[in-house]
Amino acid sequence: MNISKLLERYFEGETSLEEERSLKAYFACDEVAEEHQIYKDLFSFYAEEAQIECHSEDSIDLLLEKYFDGETELSEEQRLRDYFSSNEVKEAHEIYEDLFVFFADEAEIVYQGEDSIDLLLEKYFAGESSIAEEQRLKAYFNSEEVLEDHRQYSDLFGYFSTAQTEVLEKNIDLSRGRTLHIVRRTMVGIAATLTILLGSLYVMNLNQQGDLDNMEMTAMEEQEAEEALETTMEALAYLGVHFNKGTESLEQIKKLKKTEIFKN
């Protein structure tokens, strides 16, 4: 690790926590280069605060030892990997370089063997696939290297990827929809009212027409009408009698007056 470079990045505020930790470790040691002495106070303050132990580049040997003993932590392994992938590998360590470079390459590799597609499909249709796995399936079917056996599913997964890109371009105006809804409801109400009104009018009209058309009377109706006529005539006669009884009195008075006039 180039301490000068790290310091530069540190003051730029670009260092990672890991890098800052290694800086602090460097300054915690006694072997600080002269040009870095001015920062020593600063970092030793941190070191005191965090109780950081001396941890210099030389410890690579120690780390390797720990590594082969299987006692390294993940962060330490990362440091080893960083060290070997950098160009500053010491000659003494070059024998291990291939090993760690292989690890670094391997970590980036994602296994994408053909056989796994069958397995993934099986999991997918069983509903057990993870989102990452489904993503892989989609990527596979969108590539042009789909096997003949898998062609039947390519439409399905192709649909998913095109459906994902679909965007509703029309702007939905919610307030306008609401107004429309209210207007439509009102219209339905008015229509229903009109229907009931016109319907009842029609039925009433029908009944009245029926009255006129159905003047063909049954025998019973005729008998009832006969009785009604009789009753009406009697009633009218009764009325007439009483009416005349009243007017008769008037006539008598008139007659009386007339005779008086004649007398005069």
């Binding site: 009218l236 006669a237 009764y238 009325l239 007439g240 009698v241 009416f243 005349n244 007017t247 008769e248």
Partner: peptide, 20 residues
């Protein structure tokens, strides 16, 4: 017409009326 009804319909009291 009512006043003439009593004459044309044959019920009790008509004789009385005609007498008058």
């Amino acid at each position: 017409k009512i006043s003439k009804l009593a004459n044309s319909i044959d019920i009790d009291g008509m004789e009385h009326l005609d007498k008058i």
